[in-house]
């Protein structure tokens, strides 16, 4: 499970195109970074994959199942989970309730409690505050909760949108350590949106570079960190309006 294929995908908001001609594939167990400047379409790409944004063209497949046109709740049942930009924690629910929201789709009900215990073991602070409102957690704690919540759906493929956003560098280290360990333990396929190519290079993996809604690079993250392609993507002179 969880070979992902994105073929010639376009997303538009009304008349405004956000993504066009985007194609790439991700192998089972692979770690893929999506990078590019603000407004490049990174979040739109993740939303298109998980069904939160409709595609206007192209095809997205997971192991031969076409995702286009399916509802987010149907896609979640295929083993995809989203850890969105800004975490989108349920602030009025308790920490533990946040973890349980996504367990409704699981068939292995008996493993839910062990998984929750595991999350608390990885993030003791979440265990300590399991009955408090999640809205009272700090940004870093909310990021951990968002990852844990995604994990509780028992996914094969996890999409993580800018996990480092607004976090102190040492917390970011911790978040990445967690993601890498999870991948090792569970054989997860990971797609992570990360603006910092240096960070992506350090963690290691493949990188797809977006700019103005198009793929402008695809290769080893470490190589990108040294190449001009990144500079060009962020500061290039063509018609991308975000480059100023």
């Amino acid at each position: 499970m969880s070979k992902l294929g994105v073929f010639d995908v376009a997303v538009r908001y009304g008349k405004v195109p956000a993504l066009s001609d985007v194609s790439f594939t991700v192998e089972e167990g692979e770690r893929l970074f999506i990078s590019g400047p603000n407004g490049a379409g990174k979040s739109s790409l993740l939303k298109a994959i998980c069904g939160a944004a409709p595609t206007s063209h192209g095809r997205i497949e997971v192991d031969g199942d076409v995702l286009n046109g399916r509802s987010p709740e149907a896609i979640a049942r295929l083993g995809l989970t989203m850890v969105p930009e800004g975490r989108e924690i349920f602030g009025t629910l308790s920490v533990e309730e946040n973890l349980r929201v996504g367990t409704g789709i699981r068939r292995d009900k008996s493993a839910i409690e062990t998984d929750i215990a595991e999350v608390y073991q990885s993030f003791p602070i979440l265990g300590e505050r399991r009955h408090s409102n999640a809205g009272a957690l700090s940004g870093g704690q909310q990021q951990m909760l968002a990852i844990g919540r995604g994990l509780l759906t028992n996914p094969k493929l996890m999409l993580v949108d800018e996990p480092s956003l607004g976090l102190a560098p040492n917390i970011v280290d911790q978040v990445y350590e967690t993601l890498v360990n999870l991948q090792k333990d569970r054989g997860l396929t990971l797609i992570i949106v990360e603006q910092s190519s240096a960070r992506a290079a350090r963690v290691g993996g493949r990188m797809v570079l977006l700019r103005g809604g198009k793929v402008v690079g695809d290769g080893d993250a470490a190589k990108f960190a040294e190449s001009d392609l990144l500079n060009e993507a962020y500061f290039g002179q063509d018609n991308s309006k975000e480059t100023a």
């Binding site: 939160a52 987010p72 709740e73 979640a76 989970t81 989108e88 349920f90 996504g102 409704g104």
Partner: peptide
Amino acid sequence: TMARLLGV
């Protein structure tokens, strides 16, 4: 939307 993304 978030609830639906979690399969609700």
